[in-house]
Write a protein that binds this DNA or RNA. Structure first.
Lengths: 124, 124
DNA sequence: CAGTTGCACAACCCTACGGTTGATAACCGC
DNA sequence: GCGGTTATCAACCGTAGGGTTGTGCAACTG
């Protein structure tokens, strides 16, 4: 298993069934058999998926006799959003600056193309 | 390749090298050889990674003679943040409600444990 | 034109992943 | 104690993923 928290988080959510488990656990804690019921996969498979989510820090397991109710942990979510937002902002900032540069350029350097007509022939 | 956009996005960012590519592309467009330079992997490997990012909609490719500069696309980022934020909020809301329930309960149903002392013996 | 650069495609190797079945442990309820 | 439930462990299987090398192609450069 990878030691990098972000790698664990992103690869944990890369599986549709695991994302579905997270979505259902957001509504409330649930046991393995409860979680496995809607799918046509074995209980062991769901147990494995839960382990992946647990290793990513997205889920913690309780204990109620034989049952091991799964509980969604919301604290790790910001780790992902922080990463994503960081580079989204950076990319958008770069885009904004490019806009400024283009706007400040004289029209003969960056000619403004007509709405639908083909580009004009170069001046001889 | 999976048709689900979220699966493509999350599994694209599940690889540390691909996350690093995204981070570097956030600073500015770059060619494949430029991107491959810092790592000790082949150029073809980086080309493959770029295609994964492209299929996820995170990267678009331009054309400058032989070069194919890669450009980071920021529009798809909200797809992930929306998913993450949705269930983070839901989990936190559930947590807040649980707090309310506990706070409204009489103390003999949910006894308030002392700070450090062991729990008191049951009343005879 | 000949040579070099920049990149993609194809075939292959190995490992990790998602799935299965079977066995096993722990805890009820009767 | 005995069956029944709940869940994990272990071994196995097929495929997708990340890596390599080799080849080929398009476009610049001398």
């Amino acid at each position: 298993m990878p030691t990098d928290p972000l790698t664990r988080l992103f690869s944990a959510l890369a599986d549709p069934l695991r994302r579905d488990l997270v979505a259902r656990l957001a509504a409330g804690d649930a046991t393995v058999t409860e979680l496995a019921a809607p799918y046509d996969v074995s209980v062991q498979a769901v147990s494995k998926h839960l382990r992946v989510l647990e290793n990513a820090g997205l889920v913690s397991r309780g204990r109620d006799a034989q049952r091991r109710p799964a509980h969604l942990e919301a604290e790790v979510f910001p780790l992902m959003t922080a990463w994503i937002e960081r580079y989204r902002r950076q990319a958008e900032e770069r885009y904004r600056r490019l806009d400024d540069v283009l706007a400040s350029m004289p029209d003969d350097v960056v000619p403004i193309p007509p709405e639908t007509a083909p580009p004009a022939a170069p001046v001889p």
